[in-house]
Design a protein around this nucleic acid. Structure first.
Lengths: 135, 135
DNA sequence: CCCATAAAGTTGCATATACAACTTCATGGG
DNA sequence: CCCATGAAGTTGTATATGCAACTTTATGGG
């Protein structure tokens, strides 16, 4: 392996696609994507969180976040005050709990599969790149 | 760091977004996205490569690949025999060469920034996850 | 109190990506 | 030779994402 042909961004993107697929598969039974499940779990953990805060945490452009939460509201998971902090509906709360259960099992499984050293490596990469660690 | 709150897929996705942004910035001067530049460079290296092969290498669904190459052809970078192997036009070839120069410099810079151990960690992750190593 | 400014959010437009269903095409059996 | 089959590619539909431009809202000076 040398710098001549190992594309760091390309490899990250491929890995992200593959892992997204695996996590998406686990959440299809609940009718949510992994991205949506992640937002549900974050809003569950931090009720009233702002779109701008999530944008910074996840490094997603604010326009994308705006559309994500609009879609989630249309699905009945968020109350309608999207501009004044995000709150789960009853349905959203129950869904978030089910998603967390699924996530926990899958994440543990993947953790076991790749091993703690590999996860530590990923974490190290994060720390090197995401200087502005909002979270 | 423990398994309770460290989401592997989420972290990968955030990293991929951030790195994609950095690579995209480098390629805007050429009017291409990083994804397009990557395809250009691969087709340059393997003239006549099939969409299906690229799909497997990059773990991108074939429908997405189909649209990617259609767009690249519309931009004048690919000849029109998309179903019988992909070939760069004269313009595409020149662009691919310029992209490679940009890529090489940026990838080296990122490599230096994160350090060889971090890249090795990423590579280890790849090897654990991407069992079907077409490439 | 009013306005300038900036932050937050939305919308228009484009690319990236996936799944499902369909079409096209090559190939091996009969 | 013809058809069944499967691989490759395309298209419909939906989500995910970014940039630019715009709107809304909060806030601090004057």
């Amino acid at each position: 392996m040398n710098t001549e042909n190992y594309c760091i961004a390309g490899r990250l993107r491929t890995l992200a696609r593959v892992m997204t697929g695996r996590y998406n598969d686990a959440f299809t039974q609940e009718g949510v994507t992994f991205a949506q499940a992640g937002l549900l779990m974050r809003i569950f953990a931090q009720p009233g969180i702002r779109q701008a805060t999530l944008s910074k945490q996840l490094q997603i452009e604010k326009s994308g976040m705006s559309r994500d939460v609009q879609l989630m509201q249309k699905k009945g998971w968020l109350t309608d005050n999207l501009r004044n902090g995000l709150f789960l509906t009853e349905e959203g709360t129950l869904l978030a709990k089910r998603c967390h259960k699924i996530w926990k099992a899958l994440n543990y499984q993947v953790w076991e599969e790749v091993g703690p050293d590999t996860v530590a490596g990923l974490s190290a990469f994060s720390n090197k790149i995401l200087t502005t660690n909002t979270q």
